[in-house]
Design a protein around this nucleic acid. Structure first.
Lengths: 349, 349
DNA sequence: GTGAAAGCGCTAACAA
DNA sequence: TTGTTAGCGCTTTCAC
């Protein structure tokens, strides 16, 4: 018959039970090295008997550190779901907790920020491709360290960590050129976002250097639906499957999934009629059904760098870090030697 | 030149600035109806001027409510990523925050529980198909309300909310029978989990009633990889594509994605050679590439019920609620009139 | 309607 | 090494 009075056991009660002062109990749990082994033993035993657990809320109030990091991310994004898993894991390793906020419309971000302030989180990770600069500046004006993810525009507002969008897109473009693609179009997500612009820039600049002009076509957003819907329009635009460019560079993996499915639904073969590349390196990108050539963002490293920036002696760490990704070659793009390039005769339809 | 001293403005300072007592400031933010309009006005203005935000940590310490709900979920699961988005949204509507914990191995759950205790969350949502009863009982012995998700076995330990696994699988089985399928095999995920067992039970019982014996084949886990890998073994087991049953009922959507991709990689056409059903109703299940027939779990309702249970006057709400799902018919199963049933001659390979 | 005062459970000087 | 003593910033009686 243990008498674990569910929940509200305090250090005072443990102290009484153990026959020591409350301070000794506190120290046993927060700085054990300051307590004699004998006392520690008594305290631990008493705590065990009573079912005592230190109250992190009280600790936070006193120490001004919550060990909680907030993250503000879009609710329905394969990319962010992927990152959240990584964030959560790394935070756990560092002994911190993740307070997660999701939004479906950027306008919801404002109220989220309010909660973040109230909870005095130690830092905030912002999915800021989708968050306007106003929100970012509000967050960092709170005095809580913030790091914007994929949003180097946040200059002078907060730190930021970004995959090298421009460089990554350039790598993909190079790969396409090397594998014999001579005409390429870029399918963007949300042209308001920096990621989209930079990826297009990296792609078009590189292709331009090879004498290829790369048009930008907007899908409107980064989700599957948008990709699926743009596929038919793409066919219209180019005048049929036979007239498609050699390759489509799509701004994000999830969007690319939609583009591929949309094309296939319209009888276009990928990669035989057209090669498709993605961007992100999601786990699903490696699934056999898609198996897309994509730029893999080093998620583990990105998050690690971001968390280090949050933890760094506050304020000055206003750095803007860019991390390189690498190309993963999948089956959604043709290899050299592959025939069937549309430019020749037009084999399909 | 506002003088928002980033962060640490307290109600005392606001009180001084507004020329009222600290208590009035506090009331203005926590129970405004107790404060005269005139005072409220002064306080609000002063707060605005100073950039004051109530400290939720202090509030929690005093009020013994954190307005934080914890969720413990597997890190890499499409299903749980889907639910987390929903949980987060609904919590926001209720003015609560989500403290998210992920685990890759069930053994990690223990340490998570420790954090949960320390943070005195108001309640915990447990992804307990993957969590052993020990962990569940530890959580609920904390005195914090817990609700187990898809784990009705948690009887007498905590409340639970579950989709009607057995009934759902039965619906799918009925659908298969109605659409002319005469031989069916069940591909399970983790046979240790209740969801898996119940789904198989619902399927096999129903099929049995129609004179169909349904073998159980274990993929080992619920992820894509497991599904992909089991496909080849399935072919071995049955002796080639032509010998496959009319339909495969797969225990979860993500697993089904893998099975389908694996089958296709082996030259098996879905649904022409074999129909495949899933279970969960993930957004990806509707993607054109898969478009699977599946049992849709009413996520919104499941979460709503779970949160209500957490919020209910504590303790007694030890209910075990089951919510029905519905069949979404996709293109991964054959319709009546469709030819090509293997049983006839064996058309493929 | 408002203020004074007593904590919530802990941490962190400071003494002993 | 341990105990004593202030608070951290808020909520909430209890008077006025």
């Amino acid at each position: 018959m243990r008498e674990k009075r569910t929940g509200r056991v305090t250090s005072v009660e443990v102290a009484a039970e153990a026959g020591v002062s409350q301070a000794t109990v506190a120290r046993t749990f927060s700085s054990p090295h300051l307590v004699a082994d004998a006392s520690k033993e008594k305290v631990r035993a008493a705590a065990e008997r009573l079912g005592y657990v230190p109250n992190a809320i009280a600790r936070s109030l006193k120490s001004q550190r919550t060990n909680i990091v907030g993250a503000v991310v879009p609710a329905r994004s394969e990319y962010w779901q992927h990152l959240v898993a990584e964030i959560s894991q790394q935070l756990a390793e560092r002994g911190s907790q993740l307070l997660l906020f999701t939004f479906t419309k950027p306008s919801e971000v404002a109220s989220v920020v309010e909660s973040l302030r109230q909870y005095r989180v130690d830092g905030v990770l912002l999915a800021s491709s989708f968050i306007d600069n106003d929100a970012v500046s509000v967050v960092s004006s709170l005095g809580i360290p913030a790091v914007a993810f994929n949003h180097p525009e946040a200059l002078d507002i907060s730190g930021s960590v970004t995959v090298d969008n421009e460089g990554g897109a350039a790598l993909l473009a190079e790969h396409l050129v090397e594998t014999g693609h001579r005409s390429v179009a870029f399918v963007g997500g949300d042209s308001e976002t920096g990621s989209d612009r930079r990826r297009f820039k990296g792609a078009s600049t590189t292709l331009d250097r090879h004498g290829i002009i790369c048009p930008y076509i907007a899908a409107g957003s980064f989700d599957y639906e948008a990709g699926y819907n743009i596929a038919a329009k793409l066919l219209d635009h180019f005048g049929g499957a036979g007239a498609l460019p050699d390759a489509l560079m799509v701004a994000g993996d999830e969007l690319a999934f939609g583009v591929i499915d949309g094309l296939r639904a319209n009888g276009v073969a990928v990669p035989d009629d057209v090669s498709v590349t993605g961007f992100d390196g999601l786990p699903q990108a490696s699934w056999a059904g898609f198996d897309i050539t994509t730029l893999v963002q080093p998620a583990e490293e990105l998050i690690r760098v971001a968390l280090e920036q949050l933890a760094s002696p506050d304020g000055d760490g206003q750095e803007h870090i860019s991390v390189g990704g690498f190309v993963r070659v999948g089956g959604s793009t043709r290899r050299p030697g592959h025939t069937n390039l549309n430019n020749a005769e037009g084999s399909s339809q």
